[in-house]
Amino acid sequence: MADAIIRPIQKKDNPHIAKVIRKVLVDLGVPKVGTAYADTALDCMFETYQKDRAIYFVVEQEGKIIGGAGVAKLDNYEGNVCELQKMYYLEEARGRGIGSQMIALCLKAGSDFNFEKCYLETMTFMEAAQKLYKRNGFKYLDGPLGNTGHFSCPVQMLRDL
């Protein structure tokens, strides 16, 4: 299998990353309400990240988008905290170290944007993702920070940058 390329999102990627994220969420049985599935940003990811202190990366393999992740300021929160956002991968991207590469890239971007901490939300049953986050320095919180609108995501994690 050819090497995957990680690069910043381009406008042409919008329909492809939206399809990837929705497919992963459906495959995992995630609720469509109160999760990323319902986010209006899914269909305009390039535009969503065209703001200060925000970036989204996609993983491309042989011309096909197979995953992505990004960072941006945590919504509705006063502190200097970014959020690891929309980190989803098709099956062919999993188990290849791409997630760790992507987290490292996103954390470096968050640090370069002068954020002090990085926050994320996930689902209880996404155990492989949680192991990946823990390996990368994230620790569990007792409740949410800010208000992302993802009320169906009961697991919150945080790490220093």
Results as ranks from 00 to 15, higher is better:
85 Q>R: 15
97 G>S: 11
52 D>K: 11
97 G>W: 14
151 F>T: 01
16 H>R: 14
139 K>A: 15
34 G>I: 01
92 E>R: 08
99 G>K: 03
128 A>S: 13
119 Y>V: 12
50 Q>Y: 05
65 I>L: 06
77 Y>G: 10
81 V>G: 12
2 A>L: 10
93 A>H: 08
124 T>M: 12
160 D>V: 03
108 K>Y: 15
4 A>G: 11
151 F>K: 08
77 Y>D: 12
121 E>W: 15
145 L>C: 07
157 M>W: 03
66 I>R: 03
125 F>N: 05
118 C>W: 05
54 A>S: 12
25 L>G: 06
153 C>G: 03
85 Q>L: 14
92 E>Q: 10
143 G>V: 01
89 Y>T: 09
50 Q>M: 14
77 Y>I: 04
99 G>F: 04
59 V>R: 11
97 G>I: 08
3 D>Y: 10
45 M>S: 00
154 P>D: 06
40 T>Y: 13
161 L>N: 09
51 K>W: 08
135 R>D: 10
5 I>Y: 06
17 I>F: 01
48 T>A: 10
130 Q>T: 00
153 C>L: 04
68 G>Q: 03
153 C>H: 02
16 H>C: 06
94 R>E: 11
108 K>L: 10
113 F>I: 03
159 R>D: 00
133 Y>M: 12
36 A>I: 03
46 F>E: 02
69 A>Q: 02
145 L>Q: 01
65 I>C: 05
156 Q>T: 09
131 K>R: 14
111 S>A: 13
3 D>I: 14
142 D>F: 10
118 C>M: 15
76 N>T: 07
150 H>M: 06
161 L>M: 07
57 F>N: 00
37 Y>W: 08
30 V>K: 01
44 C>R: 09
12 K>T: 09
128 A>F: 11
83 E>Y: 15
79 G>W: 15
1 M>S: 15
70 G>H: 05
57 F>K: 00
10 Q>M: 15
21 I>F: 04
113 F>P: 02
119 Y>Q: 08
40 T>H: 05
9 I>L: 06
78 E>Y: 15
37 Y>V: 02
116 E>F: 13
147 N>F: 08
17 I>N: 01
30 V>M: 06
66 I>P: 01
5 I>H: 08
105 L>N: 02
157 M>E: 00
137 G>N: 01
133 Y>R: 13
2 A>I: 06
126 M>V: 04
142 D>L: 12
44 C>G: 03
52 D>R: 07
35 T>W: 10
